[in-house]
């Protein structure tokens, strides 16, 4: 098989599978986040699963291929949004004349999807935050790898001349 024009990309099989799996991993991550209060899992775990989708794209397409699609600036804002959401959910207790982080919303029947007051909402906020935060960290790491590879290449070319 002919090698790809872009040396940082993996083979066409990996790229195709990554493209197909991207949506599935996202959906599974959302599932783990949303069902955090009734099944094992939660915001942290689901957030990392969601971030795995980005990590997989980075592995398959390389930094140059991904950074045009996923901008870390936008992900950072998204992370701040998740943090503000989590903070505000804590404040709900203060507004409802209890204390910070008091669980004052509708508790429902334990075991149902809509139950447990603020816990599922907090899971969603934390999931947002962790997913975008971990994705930003990995993108930054790949930026570092990208530049070190670039410098190594420039050094090698300089040595050959």
């Amino acid at each position: 098989m002919k090698m790809s024009e872009k040396p940082y990309e993996l083979s066409v099989i990996v790229r195709t599978v990554a493209r197909l799996l991207f949506g599935l991993i996202l959906i599974f991550g959302f599932y783990v986040i949303v069902h955090g209060h009734i099944t094992p899992g939660g915001g942290f775990q689901g957030g990392v699963v969601t971030a795995l989708a980005v990590i997989m794209l980075l592995a398959a397409y390389g930094y140059e291929g991904v950074v045009t699609e996923v901008r870390e600036k936008i992900l950072e804002r998204f992370e701040s949004l998740g943090a503000i959401m989590f903070w505000t959910l804590g404040l709900v207790g203060v507004i409802a004349t209890a204390t910070y982080f008091a669980d004052v919303l509708y508790k429902g029947t334990p075991g149902e999807l809509i139950s447990a007051g603020t816990i599922p909402l907090m899971n969603i906020a934390v999931g947002m935050k962790v997913a975008s935060g971990v994705a930003v960290l990995v993108i930054i790491m790949s930026i570092g790898m990208y530049y070190s590879r670039k410098y190594q290449k420039a050094e090698k070319e300089g040595a050959e001349e």
């Binding site: 207790g93 209890a98 204390t99 910070y100 982080f101 008091a102 669980d103």
Partner: peptide, 9 residues
């Protein structure tokens, strides 16, 4: 005293 998550601080 401020208790986080209690009905009263």
């Amino acid at each position: 005293i401020y208790t986080l998550g209690a009905p009263e601080p």
